[in-house]
Design a protein around this nucleic acid. Structure first.
Lengths: 222, 222, 222, 222
DNA sequence: CATGAATGAGCTTTCATTCAT
DNA sequence: TATGAATGAAAGCTCATTCAT
């Protein structure tokens, strides 16, 4: 049904390797750390082997290819990052309808920020490789982006009916929201990796306010 | 005063190579095209040599290192992208004070978009490598970011005095503006490289409106 | 008496592994098929393991080395291919003296062709490896070749007494016969592996006639 | 016109590398010697590099692939071994029509034997790899074999008209001749590589006689 | 100045073999 | 006895860089 080669590989991949050896875990953890630090291209498999106290052959016994190891890092992250979103948000806000648009945006931002901070090393890897490797982007973007877009689109439609949003086509609004929020997260987590500071709270609130105003109805275009 | 190794190298670099021969131009142009297409790491110097009709040795005679060739691509772009900004914007808007905040933001967005579209291949290279190579980011960010930040900070202070802005510390507001605008540009030019479509106009206007609303005073935080 | 390392190993090998378990049989059968198809060097032990439904360790438990597994394929073939020859031929022809030389040659050719066709996969393996691996050839050739040569020499001496053969030293004649017959078989079974066609009969008859004429007395050297 | 991938590659290959460096010559010579001695699969590129006093990278700069190096060894040999045949034979025998069949066969055998002895190392490589590597055989066989077959077929037709040959279809006769002659050469040069002995003369004469009788008319099939 | 042959360190990957379970 | 995860040496190959011409 899907002609997506890479995604198929990824899914099979994550199905097959259900039982993770202790060594496999160490390999993946090390790979995440090194990929995040130096990037995929500048990390050699021999370094990964050395740092995880494993023979180089072991890596290839389990992952076959260096590329495949990268996917084994990225895929679970993406799998977890997408479908859980809608449910979690719904639970955290009003299950019957997200409450107000403000509540929704704040919950969305906070939820994703926490998720990305909890997985910030993988996020760094994904962000860098997504930008760098055209095939990865070309094949994963539609799926990941599509899911997020779909979720956000439905939510915006809901709030627009209530008259809380500016008169902008919801897809365009979704795009603006996403680039703003994602831009903020990338700037904070990938570009300027700082220890999880305390100002995060205030920053997130400012970001939320900025997004809300940008989406809000009730003011003519200036 | 500055212990910045890379920047010194860059500056020397651009001083030394004042007289660009025809061959050097071809080398740099080819490098830009190939780096943009496949990324720095996946482009070999022999490919650059072949595509520009030059012997491989010639590249190293002029640039010494592959890394240095990358800098010779990036540096003029950055040099041109920064200082010109303030002047151009000032000229395009009201030289005495940018006119209204709306005018300013619209001019800023349009001016930078045109600049980046005109140099979109280099922009792709810079964006990718900026994210990928930590040293590059660590060393260039303060300078480039600082300049932009300074300019934007002064402008925001100006408009805040006039009461056109929300009650947010200007640096924070600058950050939000920049991530939003940059996020949009990266999404459009780097992530989803399309032929310069006609909808650009409308998109830019929506982006401007979104930013303006986000910055605007006159509404309580929701 | 014999300083032949390899042959000793082979003999021990075939003595020790008298009792072949079902798994061992599957291993050897798979090895034959894969060696014949891709050659020894291009067949990995893990492939053999996978195709025979056995763990890789099991192969090494039984055969110790990949090389040894090859011998376990080759040796029984050679053991069966040699001593049986004289008896079978004798039985199939006139037990008292092979009948006429023509009968003898035809029986010889037919008997060996059937034997090789029945074991054609192993024959492919042996032919390829015999040519490819110098030690194998150097050590096995004298023994195998010697046996065949001895048998054929005796037969030729017998027919020469009867005056049926040209005036050529029997060893030289044996060599010519063997290279011609073996050349034909290798061409047909190894070089151009076709499904056992019906023209085999006619081909064999032509081969026999060619050999017979070449050996025949009664005509001056042209 | 020809869908033969490998042969195309080969031909381009030998055209491109017209100018052979001194180092290239040493590489090819070493490769021939080592391939002949141990076989292609058991010879590593690092060994070739070491033995020819060259860096390993140099091999790949010139030949790209180990496989390609093999072709660079085989191709000139095949190119020289085929087309020259007809002319040389014609010259060595009676230019108006090969003289008698006996003259023709003796000239053919002697000419090819000398050619193969002069190139005996390459012949060993070709023989081994031809047997071992199915793709090589599948792609080269039709072309090489076809040329030889064509030449021999025409010659046989010529002599058959004169009534010098047995009543066997010329293609079948050609096959028998070729397997017999080739079998002899392989046995002598590849299987039992001896220093060029003096008995060669007598052996060749016996081989010629054997072939002649096998082809001769004038005797009923026995 | 320009060339391009040569270099060699380093890369990813393969695979026969070992050994704790 | 059978397993299969782990090993590590060695393979083929890439590529930035050097240097004699």
């Amino acid at each position: 049904m899907s002609s997506n080669n890479l995604l198929d590989k990824i899914i099979q991949q994550s199905k097959l390797s259900k039982k993770e050896t202790a060594k496999q875990q160490r390999i993946v953890e090390t790979a995440i750390a090194l990929f995040a630090e130096r990037g995929y291209a500048h990390t050699s498999t021999s370094e990964i082997a050395k740092h995880s106290g494993v023979a180089e052959g072991t890596i290839f016994r389990h992952y076959g290819t260096k590329e495949n190891l990268l996917l084994s890092v990225i895929v679970p992250f993406l799998k977890e990052s997408m479908p859980s979103l809608a449910e979690e948000i719904s639970e955290q806000v009003d299950p019957r309808g997200f409450g107000s648009f403000g509540e929704f945006v704040r919950a969305l931002i906070r939820n994703r920020f926490e998720f990305l901070m909890a997985n910030r090393e993988i996020f760094r890897v994904v962000a860098k490789e997504m930008l760098y490797r055209d095939e990865l982007r070309a094949e994963l973007f539609p799926h990941v982006g599509g899911a997020i877009f779909g979720f956000l689109g439905r939510a915006l439609a809901h709030f627009k009916e209530r008259g809380e949003l500016a008169d902008i086509p919801p897809p365009e609004l979704a795009k603006l929201m996403l680039t703003t929020i994602a831009g903020s997260f990338v700037a904070r987590i990938v570009l300027a990796p700082e220890p999880p500071g305390e100002e995060a709270e205030a920053d997130l609130e400012r970001l939320a306010r900025f997004v809300l105003e940008g989406c809000a109805s009730g003011r003519a275009a200036l």
